[in-house]
Design a protein around this nucleic acid. Sequence first.
DNA 1: GACGTTGACAGGTACGTTTCTGCATGATCT
DNA 2: AGATCATGCAGAAACGTACCTGTCAACGTC
Lengths: 360, 360
Amino acid sequence: MSRAQTRGSRQGRAGIRDVAAAAGVSITTVSDALNGKGRLPDATRRHVREVADRLGYRPSAAARTLRTGKSGLIGLTVTTYGDEPFTFTEFAYFAEMARAATSAALARGYALVILPATSRHDVWSNVALDGTVVIDPSDHDPVVTELVRQGLPVVSDGRPAGTLPVTAWVDNDHEAAVLDLLDHLADAGARRIGLLTGTSTDTYTRLSTTAYLDWCARVGQDPVYEAYPAHDPCAGAVAADRLLARPDRPDAVYGLFDPNGTDLLAAARRYGLRVPDDLLLVCCSESAGYATTEPPITTLSLKPRRIGTAVVQLLIDAIEGVENDGPVERVIPTELIVRTSSQRRPPRTTVSPPRSPAKD
Amino acid sequence: MSRAQTRGSRQGRAGIRDVAAAAGVSITTVSDALNGKGRLPDATRRHVREVADRLGYRPSAAARTLRTGKSGLIGLTVTTYGDEPFTFTEFAYFAEMARAATSAALARGYALVILPATSRHDVWSNVALDGTVVIDPSDHDPVVTELVRQGLPVVSDGRPAGTLPVTAWVDNDHEAAVLDLLDHLADAGARRIGLLTGTSTDTYTRLSTTAYLDWCARVGQDPVYEAYPAHDPCAGAVAADRLLARPDRPDAVYGLFDPNGTDLLAAARRYGLRVPDDLLLVCCSESAGYATTEPPITTLSLKPRRIGTAVVQLLIDAIEGVENDGPVERVIPTELIVRTSSQRRPPRTTVSPPRSPAKD
DNA sequence: GACGTTGACAGGTACGTTTCTGCATGATCT
DNA sequence: AGATCATGCAGAAACGTACCTGTCAACGTC
């Protein structure tokens, strides 16, 4: 009796039982009617649906997940520095990528859960995921191995290093992008191209740097580069300054990270170098702001929108049972957005001498 | 028999039953040992924990949620334009706010689920939420009313318009911020201040605009403003141009939206106006890029980090049973980051002007 | 008229937890 | 010595859904 009372007077939510009782049918019929399964006449279906609407019935996601094993949730891991997710360096990239991933997931009926890679197991096991997107996983990421051990599909943004057993991955062809870009600078008249790179060992930094070194070896130029800890927002400006202060100062620079463009521009100003006349500039960025700097700066876009979309599509394919043996790989082309900073003006008759880096 | 087999040979996941069997205790004991409840000697607790580790036991989040009614998930709604979440105008603000909200949630053991306000009920009812953060809800947002009807706490970023029954809200004091900023411009010598505003009816735009009009009325200045649809990334530049092309051209402008700074700067250049000599410039933005424009532009920061943190804190407080009658309101102060664009140079009579007594 | 067949539903079980209740056992108190 | 009490654990009832397995009628079919 008290049970019946408890059930009948459940405050707030109406359950499938209440709908069944109100509609005068069984629980099974309600479930079938609402989910479009079973063999029911349209009249019954409509009736049940109408009663459910009237009671404001919402199925319990938890119960459905428990029963079906599918939650409709996809994890999106971000690397954390300190206690803030994703570093400032990859800010615009991440925002764009997450935006695209969100809409791609929603379009297929999934929602995204933001989870940091370094979180204690606590949070990870408190949420039922159907699969996970990992951004730039490190060599032997414990989270990834744990996830695949649980049988969950894992798709990574960034080619996994080592033998990380991901289900699929999506990445740009970073080597090709850098080589292409360096050729572009050389075509614009660069004689000595410098690189602003990072000290971290992630795939992006590593591949880009070795591509640069390879290119230098091929064309016979001495490498000129400065590396700095990319997660430190201040270190970039210092490194940019160091690069332009070198005795073998480059006449063109490529910066691997988003803020490098403005940092290099500021450094160039300090040394009295005109862009692009004395210094050609390119950086890898998704920020639209570089279209309106003075001068506008050429950027390499990694196409985070396309990457975010592709990653989610592959993950949901895997979740919904498209079996593949071996990881699926998808390469997204980059785009070089050429602006003033990397286009040398036609040579002048009178050469203005470069200023000394010391005084100003 | 077949049932026992099915249970015993469950491929993949180990359940609490398996742990109990392996440890030679009951299910209750396992649950209590792992969750730190009940009265168990430390020896038993350790033993159970060790066995669970060995089996790689992870509790099912779905089952736990079903049982306890708490999922540890918080919804984060974003307004969608087209099929992409959040418009470009609020890009940097949203990214910063979401970042802070994410870490605040994780610090308290919750995870964030990104959900668009306009999504079909489909997705919303497929995920079990403990509460929701809504960004800038519209007057009679159906999603919000539906959520509170279900008894879920809802905290909004942005003071809710009308009688939206939110649990709590967090916002800046936009009127005060605008008045303060206009005083700052007037102090810097502005005689006629213009406004670049939006055509949409959200709270932020509305409050800021009326504050501007009030200020004008108070000091006896004719309002000079242009409004444009803020979700259109191109319209801003056109509106900026219109504003500076007016016969009653202002000698100072405040732009309500993030890209207005660069748009106005570009427009000023086109009309041969020097900043700050001929035109003072301020815009509302979270972009660090305005520190390195030529000249650097004064910005009004809405402190999205603090807002994101506060919103999540209030929401989790509400979830975890801190009862309040009537909505809790929290006002976050804004910050005016003064840069060159809003500081009129001192008259040229003095050769080397001493540092202005800028109250530092 | 006995017999598959099919449509339209109901019963009941299982998903994997948490937690309330109960039941021994030994210790402590009156 | 009997009553009380804390301790250490086990049983079993939910949580709300999905789906498998009937049941029962109506409908042919030979």
